[in-house]
Amino acid sequence: MYLKHKIFGKLFNFFTKLPIDNNLISFIVDSNESFSGNLEYIKDEFEKRGNFNFNFYYKDKLSLDSLKKLATSKYIFLNDNFFPFAFMKCNNQTTVIQLWHAPGAFKKFGGSVENASMLKMISNNTDYLITSSKHIENYYSEAFQIDKSKIKPLGLPRADYYFKNHDVDKLRDNFNKEYGVDSSKKIILYAPTFRENEEFNNVFNYLDLEKFNKRLSDEYVLVLRLHPKIKKFYSSEISVNGDYVDCSDYKNEQELLLLSDILITDYSSIMIEFGLLNKPIIFFAYDLENYLSNERGFYLDYKKDLPGPIVYTSDELIECIDEGIDSSNLDSFVKTQFDEINGNASKRIVDFVLNEGEKNG
């Protein structure tokens, strides 16, 4: 695998001898879907500033023309790891910015849980890592093996979505029609994460749907959004009976968060983004002790620092929803994950990049 990355690096480095195009911005993507988050918001913001040209370099396609554009770009943006960067030596007039796709800091990742030598090499060739808060700087420095001076807490670009004018009533009407949902019912979104231990991936072994619906279905509808790796652990036939609505393939996750009234999750970072909406979150951690012992762990104290109650059984979950959810810790938690909550993250990032570009030009 390293050989493949090294060959890519050599090809890239050959083209860096060519002149830099000061109006060219490259985005490294792996699919059309990967462009729909942070990168799209950054592109939109650049388009407001001037006559820039954009190059999309697809990780899984070797295009010499696109590679040449990548090597001669003024700015390169990433949203995920790109391992060839360990061997790529950009022109000193090029600025490389890692936006990262996940908000805040919850589950440990990268250099916090695995061999970090490759990540260190990548970070040496990265100019800036954008995070959502100064409070998580130490975690990201460890995860990326990057010097703190390169970390800039400017925000999460795609979080700007929640501050735009959305016709929520129209979105909900469309949702109701597509899935046959009663408009009078509130939406409970259940978004469990994937476990390495297969025993705990079938959530319906732990969530009693019959009890859940008997107690709550007059007021709520349960909407399920499964991690792609979990699908094989449950039977879709259950949804045919109307016990829940399967939205695992719903294209716009942010729209789904916007429409939901309550989030049930466990160890998923989706809760950080949902927290921006100031709506209740419940943590259904039926396998917590096993997860703490055998999975990658957390940057925070799971039992003390979460922005919502933790429940361990179906009965506790149902009772929590029926009696009222304690969200008293939500505001303080969100403030540790986001320094500024105003919908201007993309603007701050582009302002910073352009100003730094002027200094280094």
Rank of each mutant, 00 (worst) to 15 (best):
L3E: 14
L3I: 14
L3C: 11
K4F: 13
K4R: 10
K6Q: 15
F8H: 00
G9E: 05
F14Y: 13
T16E: 07
D21N: 13
I25H: 00
S26Y: 00
V29M: 03
E33V: 15
G37R: 07
G37M: 09
E40Q: 15
F46M: 08
F46Y: 06
E47C: 10
E47G: 09
K48N: 10
R49I: 03
F52Y: 14
N55G: 07
F56H: 12
K59A: 07
K68D: 07
K69W: 02
L70Y: 13
A71H: 02
T72G: 06
D80V: 14
N81C: 13
P84W: 03
F85N: 07
C90G: 11
Q93L: 13
I97P: 00
A102P: 04
G104R: 02
F109L: 08
G111H: 02
G111P: 02
S112T: 04
V113N: 02
M121A: 13
N125V: 06
N125H: 08
N125C: 07
L129T: 03
S132A: 07
S133A: 04
N138S: 15
N138F: 05
I146N: 00
K150T: 03
K150I: 00
I151W: 03
Y161E: 03
L171C: 10
L171D: 08
R172H: 11
I187E: 10
I187Y: 01
P192D: 08
T193K: 05
R195I: 07
F200D: 05
F204A: 01
F204I: 08
Y206D: 02
F212N: 08
F212W: 05
N213P: 05
N213R: 09
R215Y: 13
V223F: 10
L226Y: 09
K229R: 15
S235Y: 14
S236L: 13
E237I: 15
S239Q: 10
N241R: 11
S248H: 05
E255M: 12
L257H: 12
L257E: 12
S260K: 02
I262P: 01
I272A: 00
L277T: 09
K279T: 07
I281W: 00
I282F: 03
F283E: 01
S293L: 11
D305F: 01
L306C: 03
L306P: 00
T313P: 05
T313N: 00
I321F: 10
E323Q: 15
G324L: 06
S328I: 12
N329D: 13
Q337A: 02
F338C: 01
E340T: 08
A345Y: 08
V350N: 01
V353R: 03
G357N: 09
